[in-house]
Amino acid sequence: MIEIRDVRKSYGDATVVQGVNLTLPRGGVTAIIGPNGAGKSTLLTMIGRLLPMTSGQILVDGMDVTHAASNALARRLSILRQDNHIAARLTVRDLVAFGRYPHSHGRLTREDGVHVARALEFLGLTHLANRFLDELSGGQRQRAHVAMVVCQDTDYILLDEPLNNLDMKHAVGMMQLMRRMADDLGKTIVVVLHDINFASCYADHIVAMRDGRVIRKGAPAAIMTADAMRAIYDIDMHIEEIGGDRIGVFYRQPARD
């Protein structure tokens, strides 16, 4: 369980996250949605202790992310940001194996080897294991990063816009992967998403943010309504149920003045 208590983040006068109180349940996929500048990524980054909060407290299974030993947290929670530029020339296997660092500190045991192989397999990267990252396509590289996080084998996995730069096929593949991690491996996935329909089809819970606050939360069926969408994104959305999923159609908006 992730407990977020009155968390604020400001830069000078600008407050990007304003007193968020939120409890994210253990298990399943939670999608954080909202317009640009809503504070989604900032909140996720603070949960992952990559960014200090101005005030408030975040507990992951009772561990305060600000004060808990970073190394102990690294075995509980992993976070992958969107821009993962790596200047170093590493092979896919090297990168994935670094996911074991919190467990083994570099001295890979046989068990670590099993984890590495499993993560490569899980992401369909086994045949690319010995390739250098700079020789891969954007989608493959993205999968390699996710494989590292899978290999880290934490209960909580935080992903910041993992669909960025992925084509439709790979985006669907990534969402299916999150489902499998939650359903087959029992992980808790928290993911920032821009595509509302992916959130609707794949998430168990949706948290909607706007202007640094959580303004809606609930199951996809409760969030995927025209009213909620207008409150969150300021657009008119036509919600249609297709094959059991609620899909929002918003591509044409009435002209405004």
């Binding site: 992958l80 940001r81 880290q152």
Partner: peptide, 18 residues
């Protein structure tokens, strides 16, 4: 190993508990 992880950047390092 520590130096290589640090070479992946601050966020990577913190994520891995370094």
């Amino acid at each position: 190993d520590r130096l290589t992880v640090a070479g992946l950047g601050r966020d990577f390092s913190v994520n891995l508990g370094l």
